[in-house]
Design a protein around this nucleic acid. Structure first.
Length: 297
DNA sequence: TCAATCACG
DNA sequence: ACGTACGTGATTGAA
């Protein structure tokens, strides 16, 4: 509550540019270790959305005038798709090819129940593990995030790896590669060097091992959206579109679209984002529009 | 100046 | 036996 007031409600109006009457962020290309962009002065990659009061703040971001509309396009589950493609886990790849709800689909397999009998709690637990895998979670970490005991968490992780065996080997291979070479890399060859990967200190080494797993996933997602941004920017420029690309929020692009272009630009954006990088899984885009950033989502 | 907290993906 | 989920930036208040 205090945060929303001081960081957004009070600070943002002071950041409006006198000449353009708009807020402009700076994107940093060489800050994040994984290859993501970061955003500052002000940070527009952490505008609230999760709480009701937060959503009121997001509503304040609007299209430039009556003749424009905000369009938001985001990659659906891009990090899970990347890990599935990187390790060739057919069970997960198939779920994405069939456009299934990946967390529900995971729950059905892990808990060995029909898709239509998956409970909310089972889906929620599957979702937690799906995310945890991306971060290199342990049984203890998982039990902290759920109402499961450490033993139940260990069993859940075991069932998960039985469902997706290639994920387990992928994690091991990333760590082995890092120990051997001192770095890991993304789908486009961006490296993250891990100086602590062979540390004698198990805590420090454990952190580097999680980095070895996470960096290729988070970094590959960053590679993909950057390629999409370059291709979209080129097209908008070469074909003299009136619409502008405004913001990038890791897996989302926001555009200020002239209403005359509203129908035609959406398939363009979708196509460029879906085809930015050829992978063993399809990339899916969710696209929306509205007078403000909240509605566009 | 720095750690803790909390905003986002 | 050990400690235990990735990546950022802005604000606050103690040192």
């Amino acid at each position: 509550m205090v945060k929303l007031q001081s960081t957004y409600i009070e600070a943002l109006p002071n950041q409006v540019d006198k000449k353009t009457a708009r807020i402009h962020t700076d994107y940093m290309q060489t800050v994040a270790a994984t290859g993501r962009l970061s955003s500052n002065n002000p940070n527009l990659q952490n505008i609230p959305i999760r709480t009701e009061r937060g959503r009121q703040i997001r509503k304040a971001f609007i299209a430039r005038d009556e003749n424009h509309t905000l369009v938001s396009a985001d990659y659906s589950q891009i990090e899970l798709r990347i890990i599935a493609a990187l390790c060739g886990e057919e069970n997960m790849i198939k779920a994405f090819q069939n456009h299934e709800d990946i967390h529900k689909s995971t729950a059905a397999k892990v808990f060995n129940v029909p898709l239509e009998e998956v409970t909310k709690e089972q889906r929620s637990h599957a979702k937690t593990v799906n995310f945890g895998i991306i971060y290199g979670v342990s049984a203890f970490g998982l039990s902290n995030q759920t109402n499961l005991s450490r033993k139940e968490s260990a069993e859940l992780i075991e069932a998960y790896y039985k469902t997706y065996p290639r994920l387990k080997s992928f994690i091991q291979e990333q760590v082995d590669f890092a120990r051997e070479n001192g770095y890991v890399e993304t789908i486009s060859g961006r490296r993250r060097y891990l100086k602590d990967i062979n540390s004698a200190n198990a805590i420090v080494r454990g952190g580097a091992e999680r980095n070895a797993v996470n960096a290729p996933i988070q970094g590959s997602a960053a590679d993909i959206i950057k390629i999409a941004m370059i291709n979209i920017h080129k097209k908008l420029k070469e074909e003299n579109w009136k619409s502008k690309m405004l913001l990038q929020v890791h897996d989302e692009l926001v555009f200020d679209v002239h209403n005359s272009e509203l129908e035609k630009i959406q398939p363009l954006i979708k196509h460029e984002m879906e085809n930015a990088f050829k992978m063993a899984v399809p990339l899916d885009i969710e696209i929306g529009l509205g007078r403000n950033w909240l509605e566009a989502h």
